[in-house]
Design a protein around this nucleic acid. Structure first.
Lengths: 211, 211
DNA sequence: TGTACATCAGTGAACGCGCGTTCACTGATGTAC
DNA sequence: TGTACATCAGTGAACGCGCGTTCACTGATGTAC
C-alpha cells in the first residue's frame, strides 16, 4: 500500500501542504478551545507531523495565527465585495446586503473572526496582516463613498466617518450577538435583522434617500 | 520588625485580602500579556503567596477571571449611571454623555474590558457574571426608554432595539478603536468624537428632537 | 536518458520550563466557657 | 480574664504534563549536465 500516491491517509515523508494543514488545525483549535488553545505542538499533532515540523513554515505561534487572520481578511474582503456588488441595484440596498455579508462571515467563520479581531496581534509586528485588514476596510469605505455620493449635495457627511460608523456597528453586533459559543448575548431577533434596522435608522439620520 | 502590624511590606502568615490581591494581579497580567498570560501561578507569585494559596479563594483560573469580569461590570454599571445622570439636563445630552462614559471606561480599564467581553466565559457556567452584565445593559435600556419617551408619540421605535443598537455601536467603537495595545486601529479623530457623531446621526434617524 | 549532487521538508529524541494540582502541615484568629 | 479548642488561610514540597525549542539526522524532490 505504501506505493499508493493519493491513497488518502497515506502520505510520504513530505506532507505536501503542511502550511495549509497547520492553519486549518489552528482554526479548529481556536473554535474548540479559544485563542489560547491554539498551540504549535497541538497543531502539529493534528496535522500528523512531528513537533519540530511547523518551524519550517512559521517562525512562531504568533506568525501562524497572523497567517490565519490574514487569510481570514482576504476571504472577508471578498465576502464584503460580493455583498456590496458594486452598489447594485441601489446603493442603500447594496449597503444593507453588505451588512448581512459582514454578519454572515462572522457567524459562519467564528474562529477566523476571533483571529482577525481578538488576538491582540500588533499591527506593527505583522504588517501583512495590517494591510489585509485595511483592504477589507477599503470595501466598506468605497461603499460608503458611493452611498454618500447618492445623497443630496448639500450637507453630505464625510464618507470616512460613515465607513467607520458602519464598521463599528457591524463589529459590535457581530461580537456581542453573533458568536457561536456560550458567551453570546441573547437576543430577541436575528443579529442580521438588528443590524439591518440599525443601518436603516442611521442612513435615515444621514439624510439618505428611502432606497 | 516582625511585630509591626501595618509596616507596609511586612505581612503575617495570613495575607489579609488575598482575594483582592489576586484579582488585581490578574488584571495586571491581562494588561501586560493578554488574556492567556493571566495564570494562577503567576497571580499567586505577584501576590507574594505560595502557588497553592489561590485555591482557598477560587476553584480555578476561570473563576478568578469571572470574578474580575463581574467586578468590572459593577464598576461599569456605576460609570454608565453617572454618565446618564438620570437623563439630565436633556435625555439626548445625557445619552451622549453616557456614550462618553462607556468609552472612558473601556479606555481607562482595558484589562477589565477584555475580561468582560473577550474571554469567552459561558454565561451558563458563570451566572453571577451574566447577571452583572445584564445590570450594566439595564442602564442602557433605561436610558433608551427615556429617550424614546421624549420623542413624538407617533412612530416611536422600540426602546429595546435602541438600547441594543447603542450597545453595539459603543462596543464596536471601543473594541476597534479604543484599545491601548498595538492592535488598535488607527483613527483620524478621538473615538469619543466618533461615537458622539454616530449617536447624533442615529438619534436624528430615529426622529429625536435636536436636543 | 541517466547520474550526481544540492536543496528542501520532516524526523525523533532531548531539554528546560512553567503551570496546575494535591498533600500533610502549621501559624494565626476567633470563640465558648 | 484566661484557657482550650476549632476553624481558617497560607506553606512548601512534590508530581505529572504539555509546551516551546534545538539538534543532528534523513528521506524525497528537483536540477545540471
Amino acid at each position: 500500500m505504501s506505493w499508493t500516491k493519493n491513497g488518502g491517509e497515506s502520505r510520504g515523508y513530505h506532507h505536501g501542504n503542511l502550511r495549509e494543514a497547520l492553519m486549518k488545525a489552528a482554526l479548529e483549535l481556536i473554535a474548540e478551545k479559544g485563542t489560547a488553545g491554539a498551540t504549535f505542538a497541538e497543531a502539529a499533532r493534528r496535522a500528523g507531523v512531528s513537533p519540530a515540523a511547523p518551524y519550517r513554515h512559521f517562525r512562531d505561534r504568533d506568525e501562524l495565527i497572523a497567517a490565519v487572520a490574514a487569510e481570514g481578511f482576504e476571504r472577508f474582503t471578498k465576502a464584503l465585495q460580493a455583498g456590496w456588488n458594486e452598489g447594485r441595484p441601489t446603493p442603500v440596498e447594496a449597503y444593507e446586503r453588505m451588512g448581512r455579508a459582514y454578519l454572515d462571515f462572522a457567524r459562519g467563520n467564528p474562529a477566523e473572526y476571533v483571529a482577525m479581531f481578538e488576538t491582540g496581534l500588533s499591527t506593527e509586528a505583522h504588517p501583512a496582516l495590517d494591510q489585509a485588514g485595511q483592504r477589507a476596510f477599503g470595501v466598506l469605505r468605497e461603499a460608503a463613498e458611493v452611498v454618500v455620493a447618492s445623497m443630496p449635495a448639500a450637507g453630505r457627511p464625510p464618507a470616512l466617518m460613515v465607513a467607520l460608523h458602519t464598521w463599528a456597528l457591524a463589529h459590535g453586533v457581530a461580537s456581542l450577538f453573533g458568536r457561536s459559543d456560550g458567551s453570546r448575548r441573547k437576543l430577541p431577533m436575528p443579529p442580521e435583522d438588528l443590524l439591518e434596522a440599525a443601518f436603516l435608522v442611521y442612513l435615515r439620520g444621514l439624510g439618505a434617500p428611502g432606497n
